[in-house]
Design a protein around this nucleic acid. Structure first.
Lengths: 192, 192
DNA sequence: CCATCCGGTTAGTCACCGCTAACCCCCTAC
DNA sequence: GTAGGGGGTTAGCGGTGACTAACCGGATGG
């Protein structure tokens, strides 16, 4: 499948370029609202040339979403790995997610809107990664606020994702202010 | 779904039925991912019979989204109309939106995902209604927390919508608990 | 210096989708 | 008892979209 899962990322090339353009388009028009030709011309090549890089349109979405989910899970785990106070860990986790959302609005949008357009195996994979990411949040929330029940913590995590991921829909503050605002709101919502 | 939700209006009929089914499908698969035949068979009729009730597939989405936006705006305005303390008004507004989201998960999902699939005139109309709803929130937030700048309040409103509208993605608490949780989180995020 | 292959091109195929056409009940009002 | 219309049916048309086929230029390494 993936020709090489490179640790060293000295590859800024095509594939990535195509995925970025596709993400932008999927975010704006939805998966089925975007044609192969649209994606092609967005990167300066035209139409079927994409099949030199991806097996299918579904494969593009699949790779896009799995890689997002992996980045989130890895980043989350590394934040939790750094042993600090539960409350600080929660702060780090929130900040990490906020930064990711602010830096990758199109990806975040695609992830929350287009999960249903994945192939069955891809969806299973992405769902699995997302579930583990949520579990991470649940544990961190519950160790920062111990009296929280598990289902409540899960619901809180989803709600906070919704809050943070709303970022693409409002662009009236600059990046730094927005990051602070969202972080503050998320933490307030979690610890009340 | 519930045939007798109506206070007086004894018209639960077709159109509404079709819109409800279409909302469900649009929410799950996206506008372009749903065919005319899918919608038809979801209400027991098949395919082109829908054109006895709507001029086009676009018209279905248009009517769906404008009616949602109108319901939200009207409901919001009536909550604000009842003169109470700024803080109570904010609480009412939050609770109103939470209730709507919990009672209409499919509609909420379609509204936030499929704005981009609207016809240009429809989109303008819906955008206008949404803008007025946001302005309502901005004013209520600013009168409850006067030191808030306007752009900040706008960003907060969007973020809170994201939080509340995340509802369809998590179903592990019952309706009442979920309503209380979301209301509490939203208010905490707003007043900090 | 040539073989190869990587990454592009255009033309074409096939399925599907929105929508129209033509037809067909009932049910109701006169 | 029949006229009419609201709401349903199936067949089919035109357009579009994903993908394949066949071809091609140029860099590269043996």
């Amino acid at each position: 499948m993936s020709p090489a899962a490179e640790p060293v990322a000295d590859k800024p090339s095509r594939r990535e370029q195509i995925l970025a353009a596709a993400a932008e388009l999927f975010a704006r028009h939805g998966f089925h609202g975007v044609g192969i030709d649209d994606i092609g011309s967005a990167v300066g090549i035209s139409g079927p040339a994409l099949y030199r890089h991806f097996r299918s349109k579904d494969a593009m979405l699949g790779e896009m979403l799995t890689s997002i989910s992996e980045v989130l899970l890895d980043g989350g785990q590394s934040r939790v790995g750094a042993a600090r106070s539960p409350h600080d860990t929660l702060g780090d986790l929130v900040r990490f997610h906020v930064d990711f959302a602010l830096d990758n609005p199109a990806l975040i949008t695609v992830q929350e809107r287009n999960l249903g357009n994945l192939t069955d195996p891809d969806r299973r994979k992405v769902r699995g990664l997302q579930r583990r990411y949520v579990e991470l949040w649940v544990e961190v929330v519950r160790s920062a606020v111990p009296e929280t029940e598990e289902p409540t913590a899960r619901a809180q995590a989803h709600a906070v994702f919704g809050l943070i991921n709303s970022t693409p829909h409002s662009r009236h503050l600059d990046r730094a202010q927005m990051a602070d605002l969202l972080t503050g709101m998320a933490l307030a919502a979690l610890v009340q």
